[in-house]
Simulated scan of single mutants.
Amino acid sequence: AVSPPLLIPVDIHFPLYKSNCNFKQLIESLKEGFATPSIQVPMRHHHDYPNPPEDKDSTLLLMPAFNPGVDAGVKIVTVSPNNGKYNLPAIQGTYIYLDAHKGNIKAILDAKSLTTKRTASTSALASSFLSREDSSSLLMIGTGALAKNLIHAHTSIRPITKVYVWGRTIEKAQAVCDSLTNESYSCTAITSIEDKISKVDIISCATLSPTPLVFGKWLKEGQHLDLVGAYKKDMREADDDAIIKSSVFLDTYQGGLKESGDIVIPLNNGTLKVEDIKADLFELCNGAKKGRTSEKEITYFKSVGHALEDLVAASYFYNEFISNK
């Protein structure tokens, strides 16, 4: 069982709340959210500001979303690059969940936990449209906070019996597997991506790698590729050959075309054209466009995150809290 974000209900004096995250329910909530035209998501605010004690800029990010008359929220994130020397994470944040009618704060959620849960669930939502329904094996590339959540999310919507985990060290990969010993699938740490990648149905990648870890020459017909990391324009997790061999999908055009090297670099070098991109999650969830169209098709999904996902997930966890208190 995976715990959801810490939740502080500010309209009641109550301790921090934890319970299990039902990924199937959260995925369904996200599907409904992407199909709901009333939800409004402005462009996020990005402010770099001086940090004189460190002689290096810090960053403040504000990511709002509104469902008029229902609810609203804003994720507030700070990035302080030198925090390692203070034994603090570089990225810290809070999500403020609001009543959109009366304007009162309903809850405050830990942004890191909220983001990992909604990101993993968004990947699984995309997989429900893009991976083969009989997908039974998953390769997880990366061992960070997202890895375990991505495995839980993907296995909740496909009949996966075998999971493989690769990390920069075999010890980190094994630690992920050790945390999943009581699941319905086997989990095996591996030392080589190349040896296993062509033998699995779904490949999920969540790393900070500046250069590709997934190469098109390794991909086989019918696979689904889920790319979650490489959040900067000069970073990428898959090479141009992977783009050429695949049908490409995004979480949103708004962020997907601008924020990650997995899309920006092939757009800039001519490997990919905007019109080649098949659909985003809005189009898939509202039925405007289709996902996978054949058993042999290789599907390529790039996620950069969206404030709609935060709002929907905050609503889900808040309602879970209210129904269980």
Rank of each mutant, 00 (worst) to 15 (best):
K289H: 09
L272P: 01
P4N: 07
I141W: 04
Y17Q: 12
M43E: 14
R118E: 00
P53L: 07
E32S: 11
N319A: 02
F282A: 04
D134E: 15
A314V: 05
T293E: 15
R168F: 01
T181R: 15
A288Q: 13
R44P: 06
K148N: 11
K290R: 14
S19P: 00
E133D: 12
Y231G: 01
P81G: 04
I193K: 10
K112Q: 12
G142H: 10
G229N: 01
F66Q: 03
L139K: 07
K217N: 14
C285L: 10
S137A: 06
K258C: 05
T207L: 13
S209M: 13
K289E: 03
A173D: 11
G93N: 07
A147D: 11
I298C: 02
T169C: 10
G167D: 08
S184C: 04
S260D: 10
S38A: 13
K85C: 03
Y318N: 01
S3G: 03
I322A: 04
G216L: 01
P15S: 15
Y318V: 00
M235E: 14
K106D: 00
V228R: 02
L225T: 08
G142E: 10
S127T: 15
R44V: 03
D251V: 06
L88Y: 01
F301L: 05
L267A: 03
G261F: 02
K196G: 01
K290A: 14
T94A: 13
D226S: 12
G261T: 03
P159L: 09
Y86T: 06
I197F: 06
G144R: 05
D234V: 03
N149A: 13
V10G: 02
E133I: 09
S123E: 07
K232Q: 13
W166C: 02
H47L: 14
A153Y: 08
A175S: 15
R44H: 10
F301D: 01
Q25E: 13
S131Q: 06
D251A: 05
W166M: 02
V10S: 08
F23D: 05
G93I: 10
K162A: 07
K258L: 14
A206T: 03
G142P: 10
H46L: 14
L138V: 02
I170F: 12
D71W: 05
S315A: 11
S186V: 05
I322W: 00
I141Q: 03
S131A: 15
W166S: 00
H154K: 00
V304M: 07
C21L: 15
D226R: 00
K232M: 09
F215Y: 15
V77C: 06
S260K: 05
K296I: 04
T188G: 03
A100I: 04
S128W: 13
L6D: 12
L281R: 07
A288S: 15
P212S: 09
S184N: 10
K85V: 12
A126W: 13
S3F: 08
A153E: 07
S19K: 14
I263W: 05
S38W: 00
L213F: 08
V74I: 15
D241V: 04
D280P: 06
Y95H: 12
E54Y: 11
A307N: 09
I141A: 09
A111H: 06
P210E: 12
A111E: 14
